[in-house]
Amino acid sequence: MNDAALEIQDLTVAYRNTPVLWDIDLDVPFGTLAAIVGPNGAGKTTLIKAVQGLVRPAAGNILVFGKPYRAQRALVGYVPQRGSVDWDFPTNVLDVVLMGLYGRIGWFKRPGGQQRKRALAAIEQVGMLSCASRQISQLSGGQQQRVFLARALVQDAQLYLMDEPFQGVDATTEKAIVALLKHMKSDGKTVIAVHHDLQTVQAYFDWVTLLNVRKMAAGPVDEVFTPENLHQTYGGGVAGPGSQLAEIDDPGDRG
């Protein structure tokens, strides 16, 4: 068990007694690029939020590198959904990326030159250096996503939790993010990303969890990402909408 970056035991999450996740057991090995895949309303975002204590589980135990999240907060980086914030907020790229360091700077203090340098380095890593002082409302969707990634990079974490990092980004950004993920993996980081595009799962990730309120399957992509498992996740079991069934029944989808 010591090689697991994230260990989830019997996690159940409910909103007002309506279950969103039922009894999830999940181990994500150290150093993998892991995708969480499942239909809408499968509880993918909830799973990521529960790991960080953003939603309170009804039951279950979550360990990050063998210890509870609270003790390991500095080791976890977070990329929320792009649409979760107001992009008309009066601030610029550098400022948003600096927010990734707020946990380290501590109360009352302001970010200094050292922190700025680190933030700029992260901005450069996502190829946005020329936009560092740009107002965030002037960014394209892909650029917004890169800013969020830079903010997570600057956290200098070991485990990254990303909620739909590829949602609504242009092809260029998508390629850049994939390259970044591979680079992070080679640095020994673990990345867990909610992902909705079934066609790219095999190309982008090496580990996958199929989720639909309960865990349908989890493991290396080659073993787990099978038509039967997908059918069970999207079609059988906890009933998903029929439209999605049609989508994955198309063999072209799985490349």
């Binding site: 977070y78 929320p80 927010m99 946990g103 700077i105 970010p111």
Partner: peptide, 22 residues
């Protein structure tokens, strides 16, 4: 003024703030 950066994060992205323990 004292809690400037905390309040800024609260207004912009509160759930990220919670994830880093504020």
């Amino acid at each position: 003024l004292i809690l400037w950066k905390e309040f800024k994060l609260l207004c912009f992205d509160a759930s990220f703030g919670r994830s880093i323990g504020l």
